[in-house]
């Protein structure tokens, strides 16, 4: 067992976890933050993407024990009194169908907007489609997801 302390959505969270505990399990089972979804559990679908120290990471492919001291943001931690601009954009553009992939799409969207802004690059529609390579929507609702991210990029 390894003692882990992280900051999750701005609050200290700790637990004694077995070595094999995945970050996704720590978030969902220990902290009951079930907004982070586990779709494929093989690192492909991206429903489990969360921000770790500000960067998008597949939480099903990271050990909780390795992230002692990390700052983690899940979809539950985005709204601060009001919805995050990315959440608003997904709402406005109907950027979802069944909604299962949405937590990962929103986090990946925020990650790509942040990176492109920091590097001074334009986040074009083509770039968004490439950046979403690691996020799969089984409803194939990509058009509105791409529109949502483009919309949010203008207001973030």
């Amino acid at each position: 067992m390894t003692q882990v302390t992280m900051t999750v959505n701005g609050k200290a969270a700790s637990g004694d976890v077995p070595g094999e505990t995945l970050l996704s399990d720590f978030l969902r089972e220990h902290l009951r933050l079930t907004g982070t979804h586990v779709g494929c559990d093989t690192s492909q679908c991206g429903a489990c993407v969360v921000l770790v120290d500000g960067k998008a990471v597949k939480s099903c492919t990271a050990l909780a024990a390795s992230l002692d001291g990390a700052e983690v943001t899940t979809v539950e931690g985005l709204a601060n009194g009001e919805l995050h601009p990315m959440q608003v954009a997904f709402n406005d553009n109907h950027g979802l169908q069944c909604g299962f992939c949405t937590p990962g799409m929103i986090i990946s969207g925020i990650d790509m907007v942040n990176r492109y802004k920091a590097e001074g690059r334009e986040l074009t529609e083509e770039a968004i489609r490439h950046e979403l390579e690691g996020n799969i929507c089984r409803c194939t609702g990509y058009h509105n997801i791409v529109r949502s991210i483009k919309d949010a990029a203008a207001s973030m």
């Binding site: 991206g46 993407v49 597949k58 492919t61 990946s108 990650d111 690691g134 996020n135």
Partner: peptide, 9 residues
């Protein structure tokens, strides 16, 4: 390599 989230790790 991989996708953006994989490249972060």
């Amino acid at each position: 390599i991989g996708d953006p989230a994989v490249r972060h790790m």
